[in-house]
Design a protein around this nucleic acid. Sequence first.
RNA 1: GGCCCAUUCGUCUAUCGGUUAGGACGCAAGAUUUUCAUUCUUGAAAGAGCAGUUCGACUCUGCUAUGGGCUGCCA
Length: 511
Amino acid sequence: MNREVRVRFAPSPTGPLHIGGVRTALYNYLFARRNNGKMILRIEDTDSQRFVPGAEDYIIESLKWCGIEIDEGVGVGGPHAPYRQSERREIYLKYAKQLIDAGWAYYAFDTPEELDTLRKEAEAEGKTFAYNFEVREKLPTSLSLSAQEVEERIARGEQWVVRFKIPKDEVVAMDDLIRGHVEVNTSTLDDKVLYKSVDALPTYHLANIVDDHLMEVSHVIRGEEWLPSLPLHYLLYRAFGWDDTRPQFAHLPLLLKPTGGGKLSKRDGDKMGFPVFPLFWQSPTTGETSRGYREDGYLAEAFINMLALLGWNPGTEQEIFSMQELIDAFSLERVSKAGARFQPDKAKWFNAQYFHRMTAEELAPISQSVLRAHGIECSDELAGRAANIMKERVTLTTELWDLISFFFVAPNEYDEKLVKKQWKGENPKMLAEFKELLLSIEDFSKENTESVVKAWIEEKGFSLGQVMNTLRLALVGAGKGPGMFDVTEFIGKEECAKRIDNLIKSVTPLE
RNA sequence: GGCCCAUUCGUCUAUCGGUUAGGACGCAAGAUUUUCAUUCUUGAAAGAGCAGUUCGACUCUGCUAUGGGCUGCCA
């Protein structure tokens, strides 16, 4: 079978896309690129009740930020447009009717309230109500009612749904690319709703199968929560006569809460202090906000790298992967079967690793945006250089300002501990002398300054730490930062002198 | 409750019948260092349990336990 690889990511716009969804999209994308296939984005907005305005744009922006490119679908178009299911409504009714005509489905007229009562009754007896072969001929369906009555009810405007007629006591044998062979007896299944007249929209099951078929999808890669409906989907392909082009399925392990105990959910982020969404989100209805990886200071590449390794591994000890490297290494065979707990600490570690590996040029734009946000105007070169000096201490971009601000702004207050430790004894006098030394240096490069200063320290009989830490107090204002000669070179001779004067002027030495 | 899926260090994972069960995060100790970091070295840390198959099981089978998913006119 040499079918073109075509995969789809098919989210439903009921809110922001969470990181489990991002990972599903990522695996689809990696698989498509690895196999020279196409990546489709389909929006499954068949639930008119839960539709959230803005969610679709959020999904598209998230994928874009992550570097997951869409070849075909909402936002880009393609040969099977439209790709939004709400714009394909007339297609589904036709297929639902085809199933009824072929005896694979039937009309059901139960109201939601009636079904609710049936479920409650069953529950009271300690049983679970199932709409299946045992009840479908006793309830108001086209299997129990006369053809005439069915027609009349529909003509009268009564609400109806189309249900799939699950065959009795049959074994459905399925193959999953990740889980292997799975068999289920149809008698444990129930007659799922395929189409509802209330909003003239199909449910997931119908729309999904019809669209995957029409869009010539070759591989369905989705979350494990869909595994229980796989038999239904197999049966639907058979009922439509599409067995020969049925896509291959791969059910991904779930992303679990860091503490274990369930699927990762929206609330976990707030509770445990990490984002569960790629981007910041504000609910248009409640105004409630949720943090995002982008706004929290994560790099898209690191975020993707971290996500890729949650449930998949290359079988080597490599951990840092560019998108292209992920594409080259990815295979569904190496996706693990068990759910993976999400680990916020590891996400941070990946982000720090990416910062460490960046060049000054790569850091420049990030640094610039941080500096501009604080009203600093400087060249890209300078911005990049500052960040490059400090990159080994950066975990999140949101920390960058605190790390590099002293390059651009003189300290306006001094760390108390450091003052106590250094601003005493002979140090104030030593620093004044030191200033004169700096002013006398012609070549203020890092290397030259260092050799001149070290010679001076030796000549005067000071200790290196004593001088450097006192200087640090003057130039940085705190016991942190890079080597002092990085600082002197960066801020320049005049600024060094100014900052030393400022310390001498504004802080009275102890003792 | 029913159906389905899963189960190696605290966490993410390697191992596709024969290994001193490897790596990473985190943790601890040490080294380096002008501060803070970084980096490096070292350490503690695992095959859920019970049967079976086999010369030999982490690896195969069964049962049990535990975890998870589904059980909507939601996806």
